[in-house]
């Protein structure tokens, strides 16, 4: 029984970190490919390398510092952050699935980055614009991966596992991106966002509760129950919003 509950918590952690890292990596890769194709690869890769180095330094400083924070405080703060972040993703995914928001914005992201780069001066040998755009894209999207890894990993006492799963996701998306060498529009981004939103909201609820000394029935086994509840809720919201959109179209 203990083995089952521990592995269900770990499974949710692995899926949450993997999906979050994949989604953020797809967004970063879209920007990197737009920069590389438009302005050349040298400065683009320098920007990517600088961003990765900055992220590694950040993890090296913040990760060990978080381990010293009392567990209840850590659970409460991280749970609250994950709740806010998770509900934002879930909200966006529900709005997209019910047709109230455009579904895939990778094309738009790629085109707007290309337009921004083309309007800049012609590319010199050391292209500062390409460096800055690639750096910002990778650093900001990577920061969200770092936050997911640190918050989920430290709260579950599995920082190493979370970091390894994120690294696998990042390498996997990078390989796919290098092979197809264009923006990853075929990736089911909204379905992944829905999954991430549900998992982060579930983790946020669970840990905010733990931080407030709530006793979950079955301990860690409460986590998959929360995932199931939010999954059903998301589905009900999508059905309701689609139905209301259909009624509006019929009456107008």
């Amino acid at each position: 029984m203990i083995g089952t509950t521990v592995s269900s918590g770990v499974a949710v952690l692995v899926v949450a970190v993997f999906l979050t890292s994949c989604v953020e990596m797809v967004e970063a890769l879209t920007i990197v490919l737009a920069v590389g194709h438009t302005r050349g690869w040298r400065s683009c890769f320098e920007g990517v390398a600088a961003a990765l180095a900055a992220l590694v330094v950040l993890v090296a400083f913040v990760g060990p510092a978080l381990v010293r924070v009392p567990l209840a405080t850590l659970h409460l703060v991280i749970g609250t952050i994950l709740l806010i972040f998770g509900m934002q993703w879930l909200r966006k995914a529900i709005l997209r699935s019910s047709g109230l928001k455009a579904k895939n914005d990778e094309d738009v992201r790629y085109q707007s980055t290309v337009a921004q780069l083309q309007s800049s001066d012609s590319a010199p040998r050391r292209d500062q614009v390409a460096f800055v755009v690639a750096f910002k894209g990778v650093f900001l999207e990577g920061l969200e991966v770092v936050i997911a890894v640190i918050t989920l990993g430290t709260s579950a006492h599995r920082l190493g596992l979370a970091a390894m799963v994120a690294a696998i996701a990042v390498v996997l998306v990078a390989i796919v991106g290098a092979v197809v060498s264009k923006q990853l529009t075929k990736v089911p981004e909204n379905a992944m966002k829905m999954g991430v939103g549900i998992l982060l909201t579930s983790y946020g609820t669970f840990w905010a509760g733990e931080g407030l000394k709530i006793h979950w029935p079955g301990g860690d086994a409460g986590l998959p129950v929360l995932v199931a509840i939010y999954l059903v809720v998301a589905w009900l919201f999508i059905v309701a919003f689609r139905r209301s959109a259909t009624v509006l179209e019929t009456t107008s």
């Binding site: 709740l83 509900m87 609820t205 509760g209 709530i214 979950w216």
Partner: peptide
């Protein structure tokens, strides 16, 4: 109450 209210209020 806290156990039930937390996910319900989030929803």
């Amino acid at each position: 109450l806290a156990l039930i209210a937390l996910p319900v209020l989030c929803v």
